[in-house]
Design a protein around this nucleic acid. Structure first.
Lengths: 216, 216
DNA sequence: GACGCTTCGTGACAAACATCACAAGCAGGA
DNA sequence: TCCTGCTTGTGATGTTTGTCACGAAGCGTC
């Protein structure tokens, strides 16, 4: 049982009756930074709706590198949770809380029921798939066609947009891991970017200045 | 108006009433090899169900390289056509007929209607999303984590599975384009693969012998 | 058969990136 | 204060891949 207001704030597009339904059956769960929401090979019994915080969705390789797929924030659902849940299939992705995260979990069966019943839910689910698909395509584009410097800028921008800050507080080592590159390369590229006035390097964070030269 | 048998053969999981409905409203379209089913930026007004042939879904870069995402065959739908259609959004992908292709086109409005009405359609759509998503993830994995030789083998296998033949009849130049590599590199790698007995190079095709050493 | 067209193989070189090695800076704890 | 661990910067070097240049082979056309 959940406060309806919490749902309305984060999912304003849901129709009133749906909100009431969610409030009835959803369970709130909290995650601390670093907690896993989902691991490779795991199965789902719930749909996960994010109401607070940022979730990092990534793929892990043999050496433990965490290759970033996309971030999820409040107002979004874990598309994979829906898609896997719907077919009782295992996920190929990992999802980890970047910040303190609050989610609503809704039993699987409800997802199917609501798809038929509520247009707003139906569109929400489809829109979510579509958005996630696009993000993966975008990531793929960058890996396939761009050099590391552009990919780095793309990462910084994505981080900045999602975290709503110009200051990236993440170690160079971690950034390298998310781009499946190496610390040394990222370090050198950042140096070049700061020489060009694109970023400003500070002791414990990277500040974004002007990405315009890099975006296309 | 379409033969119901055509639908039943290719989509055996559809319930009888749904088959009848599809037969009533679907229109058959034919494509010759090389024809486009969909281009970047295009909008959809139909869901596309493939009943014959192979469709190549890819992304094009600035220089016209056709970076392969996945193949579609009969019994599958163009997930993008569904997802884009549903939201009147533009596609980021290209789809081209590899062989002679036959499809059924179903007006958009029906897709939504059937989602609520027919469980078999609902599961079909979700399953399709999921399968496409997985394929893109797989492609991404390879680009991100693997070297060109492994990616080449992966491509050959995918081609072989989809086209149901051990003989790849595609120019080295084209293969290079689909892997976003260059002809010279692929040529050298194929030579190495043939030295290792993985493939046999013939004048006008590549024959797959034993991929086991390469698959993981 | 001569000509163009496309495909393919191969050597030489360049660019991007990974890896190794080492040093310096900083924070926290004993 | 010293030690330890974590992070970062940077030079040297190797690997993978892309690019350029060139020549050969096949194939259709006139």
């Amino acid at each position: 049982m959940v406060e309806e207001q919490l749902i309305r704030t984060n999912y304003p597009e849901f129709e009133p009756e749906l909100v009431k339904n969610i409030a009835d059956v959803a369970v709130v769960k909290m995650f601390e930074p670093g907690d896993y929401l989902m691991k490779t090979g795991q199965h789902f019994r719930n749909v996960i709706l994010i109401t607070q915080g940022i979730v990092k969705v990534y793929r892990e390789d043999d050496e433990g590198n965490e290759f970033l797929m996309y971030y999820l924030e409040s107002g979004q659902a874990c598309a994979l949770s829906m898609i896997c849940a719907a077919r009782f299939e295992a996920s190929q992705l990992m999802a980890k809380a970047e910040t303190k995260v609050e989610v609503l979990t809704v039993p699987l069966a409800k997802m199917d029921e609501w798809m038929a019943k509520y247009k707003s839910w139906y569109y929400f689910v489809l829109q979510n798939y579509r958005a996630r698909f696009d993000e993966v395509l975008n990531t793929l584009d960058h890996v396939a066609f761009r050099n590391m410097d552009e990919r780095l800028v793309f990462f910084l921008k994505r981080y900045s947009d999602t975290h709503k800050t110009k200051n990236i507080k993440q170690s160079i080592t971690d950034i390298a891991s998310e781009l499946n590159s190496s610390r040394e390369v990222i370090s050198r590229l950042l140096k070049k970017l700061s020489e060009n006035g694109v970023v400003k390097l500070s002791k414990d964070h990277i500040e974004l200045l002007d990405l315009s030269a890099y975006l296309r």
